[in-house]
Amino acid sequence: MPDKTITLSVTRFDPDLDPEPRQQSYEIPFKDDMVVLDGLNWIKTHLDGSVNYRWSCRMGICGSCGMNVNGTPKLGCSAFLRDYLPGPVVVEPLPNFPVVRDLVIDMSSFMEKLSAVKPWIIREQGAIGTGEFLQTPAQTEQYRQFSMCINCMLCYSACPVIAIEPEFIGPAAIALARRYELDSRDQAGDERLRTITASDGIWDCSFVGECSAVCPKGVDPARAIQQTKFDSTLGVLLPWGGK
């Protein structure tokens, strides 16, 4: 057993019992290479098997273990405990999403927004079966960073506009819409543009920029939103604008 320990203060919420979420503290062994997710797994294995949270890959790819760590949205698998010494480390569910239980949030609103922007390549009728759709490296580079989104929803938790206007389509969905708009193989740009420029779309964004600051994959959703604002404005002002 390591000599050093650290305290994790974890949000507990059982909707059948608790009127409000509460914090529960656990003292766990500390090792320099431990992340918050390791700490939660240690708690679940050794102290309290009833703690609920989502996780899967443990390597910042699946986007499942999003949680608020000391007030900042983080992936639990990427937040090293050593960065929060001497503790306590406050682990809470992602804000702006209903809490189902403990650290588990209801992500259905995000899934609806995501599907609304049709985040897949759309070709005109019949074209999908005609063969390969080649793309140069320069064309790929146009959308590459937006394609790194792992749908972890940290950007939604960091966005105060979502808190005020829950119907706002939000950073990740717009970044992914932008990713397909910029893809030379896609032919549904106008269709997506109508979705994200409508009510609850890009114009709700007041450019706080925190969505980009918290993104664990270096995606810049704020840039996607402002680019789309600029392009859609040009599209209105100039017949050839926004293309």
């Binding site: 320990t5 203060s9 507990r12 919420f13 059982d14 909707p15 059948d16 019992l17 608790d18 009127p19 409000e20 979420p21 509460r22 914090q23 529960q24 503290s25 656990y26 003292e27 766990i28 062994p29 708690i43 050794h46 102290l47 309290d48 098997g49 009833s50 209903p98 809490v99 189902v100 403990d102 209801d106």
Partner: peptide, 27 residues
């Protein structure tokens, strides 16, 4: 090493499954 509680309510560890009842509202 161990746990201690602060805040409201009972220990969530004692919370029973909903067992087919309608799910309680999320916070």
């Amino acid at each position: 090493l161990g746990r201690r509680e602060t805040g409201l309510g009972e220990d969530a560890a004692s919370g029973a499954s909903t067992g087919g009842r309608e799910a309680a509202p999320a916070h």
